[in-house]
Design a protein around this nucleic acid. Structure first.
Lengths: 175, 175
DNA sequence: GAAGTAAGTTCAATGAACGAACCTTCAATG
DNA sequence: CATTGAAGGTTCGTTCATTGAACTTACTTC
């Protein structure tokens, strides 16, 4: 998106944001990173994204400081991609997108996002209506809803069947 | 985006939202519609979007109930595209995208969005910190900031140099 | 020594975006 | 009455991005 034909001349930070995260798949990679996905193969299996596109998006997100590439073993050399503060700051964008879709199209709840301290479901912009504060992303508890497939094909999908906090790393245990 | 290769099997309303508004240009068309742009030629000039792409996006957004096509004169027949409640509900998404970009990249303010009743600048999710309420989109006052080009090439850009409310139709007066 | 795993790259085919040119329906102008 | 112009498109050839399958590399385990 940022190459060649961009949203040039758009004097607008919304357009600027879309330059960075507006490409196909990009925000879904960020979503998975918020869910705790860190490894190439986990992104691959959970998203169903073409390998080349995933590699390109991970590189772009790393270059933008939204993910951080981190060596987690030396032999053989293996890297994982960890979300940064800048990436975590995208949570309200994803939250509001999800709320918009479910509310406007009357869909059944797939996942609940709750304030871990009190169990209350978050409002539209990630606040806790009971406590009256914007909940830090690390204190958001993600909890399967009635509409969710109880038997996902990939290991990440299965790990996400249990209630868990955002950002908590997913240890991918193969079948 | 929705044709053929979609984000199929993503059990997630965020992915569902990106199916609808995740294509290139789509959210910028919605942004302009929130600014009060309604006519084909105004979108065209202000966005710098290829004509065929604009036509396709307007059609898709109309089909999704985000814009409404409305006849504004009979002879010759002319239609305009007016944002619906469903489209207005996307405001928090655009607001949080814009905030994210400006805050994370330390940019100078291009536009202020204020609570029209009291003049206070909106918070990250469109609330008024002074009044303590989420400001209805029609009560958001948009106000040029220091970073804005004082002499835009297109008539919409010029109309947006004056403070004005969101949703208020832009009457495009050519040069 | 064969098979497996993690993280990629390469490649041909398809699809989407781009920009220029063209089209249609009318109104206003000369 | 012929021409120009405006609004809202469509068509088309070129370029660019995405897709899915196959291949690569560097190890580890059986």
């Amino acid at each position: 998106m940022s190459l060649g034909k961009d949203y040039a001349g758009q004097e607008c930070s919304m357009a600027g944001a879309l330059e960075v995260v507006g490409e196909r798949w990009t925000l879904l990679v960020v979503r998975d990173a918020l869910y705790g996905v860190r490894r190439y193969n986990d992104f691959l299996a959970h998203l169903g994204i073409p390998r080349a596109v995933l590699a390109s998006r991970l590189q772009a997100l790393t270059a933008e400081g939204i993910l951080e590439k981190r060596r987690y073993q030396e032999s053989p050399p293996r890297d994982e991609y960890v979300i940064t503060e800048r990436g975590i700051a995208l949570w309200p964008v994803l939250r509001s997108l999800g709320r918009w879709k479910r509310e406007q199209y009357g869909e059944t709840q797939l996942r609940y996002f709750r304030h871990a301290d009190c169990g209350t479901e978050l409002g539209s912009y990630g606040e806790c209506p009971a406590c009256g504060l914007v909940v830090p992303v690390a204190d958001v508890l993600m909890d399967p809803g009635p509409g969710l497939d109880p038997d996902p094909a990939d290991s990440v999908g299965r790990a996400l069947l249990k209630p868990r906090r955002l950002l908590q790393p997913i240890e991918s245990d193969p079948v």
